[in-house]
């Protein structure tokens, strides 16, 4: 059996790639995808821990994380479409005037 450490390495690396993408990119759609990547990294670690501790509750949490991810993607993309209708761009720094 694969040691649990390796699952920790894999999901930490995936999570860090997601954070790097959020910091590095400016396209809102890519930012959403990086958020999905981070949620998936946490899901992977939850499943690995549930298997190693023989506890099915963690896999139920993965359901709830998937649910939040689906709701977030639907509402976020709807907001993006609405913003795009006002000003046709998806660059995140164009929208910093929402602060005022």
């Amino acid at each position: 059996m694969i040691p649990l450490d390796h699952y920790i390495y894999l999901s930490s690396i995936l999570f860090a790639i997601g954070v790097t993408g959020v910091l590095m990119r400016r396209n809102m759609i890519v930012l959403f995808m990086c958020i999905e990547l981070m949620l998936n990294a946490s899901n992977l670690l939850l499943v690995a821990l549930s298997q190693y501790h023989s506890d099915s509750a963690a896999q139920v949490f993965v359901f709830f994380v998937m649910l939040v991810a689906a709701a977030e993607a639907a509402v976020g993309l709807a907001i993006l479409v609405m913003l795009y209708r006002n000003n046709p761009t998806t660059q995140i720094d164009v929208w910093n005037r929402l602060k005022n």
Binding site: M1, S50, Q51, H53, S54, S56, Q59, V60, F63
Partner: peptide, 19 residues
């Protein structure tokens, strides 16, 4: 690993009972 790995954890029967 706390106890010997149980292959039935991820099956729909167990998950449904927990959920």
């Amino acid at each position: 690993a706390a106890n010997p790995a149980n292959a039935k954890i991820g099956l729909i029967e167990n998950l449904g009972m927990t959920l």
